[in-house]
């Protein structure tokens, strides 16, 4: 699993952007969705997830705002920007190309 994790980690940002394409979300919800989609086989470390948020926000691909939860702690929500959507499409194309190449090589 550790080799797989290493490969997946390179795509953390694309995975986050994909999730945000559908709707605004916050850290735990994104990680939970990743876990469910991969049938509990994969989840991000918190440190990886939140440093990816920071990089994406700095690059202008996502923006953040605080939720107004009445009960419990506030959540920090992220939403994808127009630039983020463009970057996601590019990353996805890059991955599809890489996948084809690797398939023909291995």
């Amino acid at each position: 699993m550790s080799i797989t994790s290493d490969i997946l980690r390179g795509h953390t940002e694309t995975i986050i952007l994909k999730h945000l394409c559908d709707h605004d979300s916050y850290g735990y919800e994104i990680n939970k969705a990743i876990q469910e989609k991969t049938d509990n086989q994969y989840q991000l470390k918190d440190a990886t997830l939140y440093s990816a948020f920071q990089r994406l926000e700095k690059a202008g691909y996502i923006s953040s705002y605080w939720g107004d939860e009445n009960v419990g702690a506030r959540r920090k929500y992220y939403s994808i920007t127009q630039q983020g959507k463009i970057y996601y499409e590019l990353s996805k194309k890059a991955w599809e190309q890489a996948k084809e190449l690797i398939d023909s090589l291995l």
Binding site: G27, Y28, D46, Y50, G72, A73, R74, R75
Partner: peptide, 8 residues
């Protein structure tokens, strides 16, 4: 705050 609320 973000980390704490998500962890809780």
């Amino acid at each position: 705050e973000e980390l704490t609320s998500n962890m809780i």
